[in-house]
Design a binder for these strands. Sequence first.
DNA 1: CCTTGAACCTGCGGGC
DNA 2: TGCCCGCAGGTTCAAG
Length: 279
Amino acid sequence: MIKLRVMPELPEVETVVRALAQAMHDKTISGVTLTRRDLRKPFPDNLEKNISGQRVMSLSRRAKYILIHLENGRVMAIHLGMSGRIRTEYVLSARQKHDHMILQLSDGCHVILNDARRFGYVLCLPERDLHAHECFQNLGIEPLERGASGSALHKALQGRKTPIKQALLDQHVIAGIGNIYACEALFEAGINPLKPAGSLTPEACQRLMKKIQDVLNRAIQAGGSTLRDYRQVSGESGYFQHDFKVYDRAGHKCRMCGHVIARIAQGGRTTFYCPSHQT
DNA sequence: CCTTGAACCTGCGGGC
DNA sequence: TGCCCGCAGGTTCAAG
């Protein structure tokens, strides 16, 4: 059994995509069970008709979306929101609280979407319509793809007075970054999260983009991050949480300069940073 | 166009 | 033990 419980930012979604590819590639979806009609958005009207009997050609990721490419040219897109988890079970055990969608595969495997807070959602649309869909058309820089660069980031931040931390969370500016990796990347780049986004120099943007890519890649290598009391025998849990340099470290000493890590609120989210060397 | 704050929903940990 | 409060990985929408 593969069981995936992650904090769904880019590295965690990427980790889920890779694990799901193992389970789903070249399998046929033989059945769909929905236990309610909606999460944050309604499930697509014709979901069962559009995915049942379809072979899974490949899986990919865009921003924080899991994309499941089907033989009929459609894509099922899954966003995990804050609390979405996906697990696979070859022998379907008792249904758990907040299991909302169960896909049955031709080899007997079940793919189960569980989401306590229901901030996640599922879409299903023709692949050719994907980039024009409202959820995808305005997405910003994909940080690990060609085209991501300091100059692209600098351009995307032009004229923005909002603090750089909040700009990094704006998926229309740069896609895939969430609260943890925004804090971590700014720390590593030595940039104060309160700095107006548009005031970053091209050099600072270069440094920041490099650190964003760096921290995301390291987190993917580590299998993402998991929090709280998660324990798992399958070896599928990530361990990047042990590498956090600022996130959730308020009151502890900065690993770089020894100053005390601060915790502030920005736009309703918590930011952790070192006031001494993030300038 | 940009920015801000509230809203969506459930679970968990801490304080009393 | 139990209740109440604050807080949590994300996004959208209304209002200024």
